[in-house]
Every structure is written in C-alpha cells, then in structure tokens.
Amino acid sequence: MEKDIYTLIDTALKIGLGALISGSATYFVARHNSSHEKAKEERAFRRQILQQAALKLELAHFKLDEATHPFWAHVANKDATPLTSVHEDSLKHNLDARNIISEARALITLLGILPLRKSLLEIEKDASKIYEAVAKNEVFKQGTKINDIHNDVRRRLGECIETLGNHELA
C-alpha cells in the first residue's frame, strides 16, 4: 500500500511538472510571437506613413511646377489666357503645394524624422516667397529669383523623397 502511495505521488509530480513545463513554454512562445507580430505591425505602419509622406511630397513637387509654369507658358506662347486667371491659378497651386508639404511634415514629425521636418519648414518658407511674388504681381520683375527659388525647392523636395526612401529601407 505504501508503494501505491509513492507511485501515485510520483505520477502526480510527473504530470504536474510536465504541465508546468508545457504551460511555461507555451507562455514564452506566445509572448515571443506577440512581440514579433507587434514589431511587424509597427514596421508596416511606419512604411505606410513613409509612403504617404513621399507621395505627398511628390504631389507638392508637381503642384509647385503647376504654380510657376503657367507664367512662362503665357510669356513663351503669347497665351491668350488673361494674366489675372494665370495669377489666380498660380496662387491656388502654390497654396495647395504648401498645404500638402505641411501634411507631409506632420507625417514625418509623427515618425520622428526631425531633420527632414526642418528641411520641409524651410521649403515651405521658400514656397511662400514664390506665393508672395505672385500675390504682389512681381513675377516678371523677379523672374530669375523666382526660378532660382523654384529650382532649389524642387531639388530639396527630391532630396526629402530620397531620404524617406532610405528611412524605409532602414
């Protein structure tokens, strides 16, 4: 009888230890998978925001082109479009570009890419200079300066997009 009790205790201990080991292993595997899944979701979220910001910067690039090209087309082609209409279109496209850059800057700030945020603030200031020249009807008077600012802004937007691409790869 004494042997039966020892056998029973032995069996109970083996079952209990087996359950404890199995439960612990299951817990740690589930915890590891959960943290891995969370990191995967965070990477996907970051990639999605980077892509949104890059698309916004590309759209801003396009809008800034739209803001300045009507003037040069007007001059080159002796376009019959009234100059006031060209001014209005230019102001609208420039404002759209600045708003889009601001949206991209917010996304970039969310990701914590602060040097890029600073670059976009400077780009917005330069786009504002173009806007002011158009609003003051000084486009033709300041044509070379506006072209230089526009080309510099386009170059820096391209650099920002490239930087975003490098952050996605990291």
Rank of each mutant, 00 (worst) to 15 (best):
I5Q: 09
Y6P: 03
I9W: 08
D10C: 06
K14M: 10
G16L: 15
G16W: 06
L20D: 05
G23P: 02
A25Y: 09
A25K: 05
Y27T: 01
H32K: 13
H32E: 12
S34I: 01
H36W: 06
K38W: 07
A39C: 02
K40L: 15
A44L: 09
F45R: 10
R46I: 03
Q51R: 11
A53K: 02
A53W: 01
L55A: 04
L55M: 07
L55I: 00
L55V: 01
A60L: 00
A60V: 02
A67M: 14
A67V: 14
T68V: 15
T68L: 14
P70W: 15
F71T: 11
A73R: 11
T81C: 05
L83C: 10
S85F: 10
S90P: 14
L91V: 10
K92D: 13
K92V: 07
K92N: 11
N94G: 12
N99L: 08
I100F: 04
E103Q: 11
E103N: 09
A104F: 00
T109Q: 15
L111M: 11
L111P: 01
G112K: 10
P115S: 10
P115I: 07
K118T: 12
S119G: 08
S119C: 06
L121N: 15
L121C: 10
E122G: 09
E124F: 05
K125A: 14
D126S: 14
S128F: 12
K129M: 12
Y131W: 12
V134P: 08
A135H: 07
K136V: 04
N137I: 09
N137R: 13
N137L: 08
E138Y: 04
Q142D: 15
T144Q: 15
K145L: 09
K145E: 14
I146W: 04
N147E: 15
D148C: 05
I149P: 00
H150V: 02
N151D: 15
V153A: 04
L157N: 01
G158V: 06
G158Q: 07
I161Q: 00
T163W: 09
N166V: 11
E168G: 01
